[in-house]
Amino acid sequence: MTSIEFLGEGASLGRPFAFNGAAYMYWKERMLIFLEACSLDILEAVIDGPFVPTIAGTSDSSIPKPRSDWFEDDKEKVGYNAKAKNIITSALSADEFFRVSNCKTAKEIWDTLQQTHEGTTNVKRA
């Protein structure tokens, strides 16, 4: 299941652990640790989805704020998704990258990899 070569790769504080399609559960846990170490906000973008600035003071707070109206704080929070996408995709082999290349958010990438390598909730229960 796991190759010694795969497990023999050294850890790095600046580079995420590589994933080539083997030992997904091991890679997943290592990646969660890496993302958390980078920033809790980056990890949150992966788990909960990207931050979307919305217009305050409206009855429907789900109206996206135009980019021209974003504050610096909004820009920083939106950037966590881009950072998370970069971290995850930089760890993927070409085959794994092309599996998720159409995903728009870090959460979509993460969920696609999880479903591909772990299966759906129903598969896991069985």
Rank of each mutant, 00 (worst) to 15 (best):
S59C: 07
A126Q: 15
K124G: 05
E96Q: 15
W27E: 04
T112V: 03
G21L: 05
R67F: 05
E108I: 01
A23C: 10
I55C: 02
L32H: 06
C38M: 13
D74A: 11
F19P: 03
K65Q: 13
F51S: 01
K77C: 07
G10S: 14
T54V: 12
F71V: 13
D95M: 07
A11G: 10
S12V: 04
L35C: 09
E118K: 09
T54C: 14
N122D: 10
Y24G: 04
I109C: 02
F19M: 08
M25N: 13
L13M: 14
D41G: 15
T121M: 13
L32F: 07
A106N: 06
L7E: 03
A82K: 10
R99I: 07
G21W: 02
K124F: 14
V78Y: 11
I4V: 14
T105P: 02
D69I: 01
A82G: 08
Q115P: 02
F97Y: 13
K75F: 00
A106R: 01
A106S: 13
L32G: 05
F6H: 12
W27Q: 00
T89D: 07
V52G: 02
V100N: 01
E36F: 12
V100T: 03
A45D: 07
F51R: 06
D74I: 06
S101Y: 10
T105S: 10
I109P: 00
T112P: 08
I88T: 04
G8Y: 05
Y24L: 00
E108Y: 03
A84W: 04
V52K: 10
V46P: 02
R125Y: 05
F6M: 09
F51A: 02
F17T: 12
S3E: 04
W27A: 01
V100W: 01
A56F: 06
G21M: 06
S12K: 04
G14F: 13
F17H: 10
S93E: 08
